[in-house]
Design a binder for these strands. Structure first.
Lengths: 199, 199
DNA sequence: TGATTAAGAAACTTTTAGTATCTTATGCTC
DNA sequence: GAGCATAAGATACTAAAAGTTTCTTAATCA
């Protein structure tokens, strides 16, 4: 019989981890408070005291991961490419690592039929992620401008975010993302489009 | 007390309609057999006899709508544009009418954590929709080729489908789609990309 | 060291999903 | 048109899971 009890931040971290494990391994359908409690080695009331529903918990757990772990690094990737295309490839290769988690938040929002108006948590998450994505592209463009590949200027926000949207959609629709996919995106779409917009 | 009883196709149509109403108005979370039965003016056992779960019913109802009503018309849109950009606009404007329904199928697949391998119904749906979308683009390109705007050739499949993917993503992420959005997509992305690929 | 807070176990209540049974309307066959 | 097979729909039941309450005791802090 264990006499030790976790509490506070340590306990919450364990609950978040258990939540994400269930989401990734078994899917949203299996995300119940009972399952989370068992996996985190705690009990239902502990979880009920903190979150109102498995969905709130899921959003919190996803937020925790995106903000603290994965995504914050995207706009800090060290760019070493010799061209616009090279740099873009580096950004997107890093990006593909952490897509799944974010999509789950959107699926949850859809499932609950609550748009961002009703769901400030999801809205915040979305905005902070967009901010990071756009910044990564800005860095790439600035390097290309220094090289003389692009003229000076800033791309429209929707243009900046489009490749990220598309890659997320592919994951959502269960389409593979390979190096070839990324090269198609970069060579046939982005470089021509950027040159057209800043050319 | 009503003595009249619907059966067969008529009854199924009512159940499909009730299912879609619930999906659109209340979301997937509210899609239970009890709710569907009540809304369709029938009873639970009738529905249990035909479908195994609310998800199977949802896929069937969505399939019913996409195949029979909305989407089949996309590649039959009468194109009257004077340019590649005009024609593309006409296709996408028509496309935006029927996106929601399709995304719901993807959300359901995600929720159940079943990819297309496990879910032939979803796979079929996806493929038939992709076929239609790609064909619509092919028609537009052929017209542009006759006009001399593009060289002869066929775009890669992923390139053909990219704008549809992106628009679906925007709906999924609750981003607005306006005429301005479409013009950005067409003028800054597609036309340069198509000219690059067939230029 | 005593007081306060919160974790965790267990039992309980309530709700909902899923099933079984039965009556009777519908539509087909002879 | 009478009788028969099929399936709709009402009702009640069963089983499982969600959600809640209570209580004991570990952790933390004054």
């Amino acid at each position: 019989m264990t006499k030790t009890r976790r509490r506070g931040t340590e306990l919450e971290a364990a609950i978040y981890q258990a939540t994400r494990d269930i989401l990734n391994q078994d899917g949203l359908e299996q995300l119940t408070f009972a399952n989370v409690a068992e996996r985190a080695g705690t009990s239902k009331p502990v979880i009920y005291r903190r979150w109102r529903s498995p969905f709130e918990l899921a959003i919190a757990a996803i937020r925790d991961q995106i903000i603290t772990e994965n995504h914050g690094q995207l706009d800090e990737v060290v760019l070493t490419g010799q061209s616009l295309a090279d740099d873009l490839f580096q950004v997107f290769e890093r990006f593909t690592v952490s897509i799944d988690t974010f999509n789950q938040a959107l699926v949850i929002a859809w499932f609950r039929h609550s748009d961002q108006q009703n769901n400030p948590e999801v809205k915040d998450l979305l905005n902070s992620v967009k901010q990071i994505d756009a910044h990564a592209i800005e860095r790439v463009c600035q390097r290309a401008q220094k090289r003389g590949e692009l003229q000076v200027g800033t791309l429209p926000r929707d243009l900046q975010l489009m490749p990220f949207d598309w890659l997320r959609y592919r994951v959502f629709a269960n389409e593979p993302i390979t190096d070839k996919t990324l090269h198609l995106l970069i060579d046939d779409f982005l470089v021509p489009a950027y040159q057209h917009a800043l050319g």
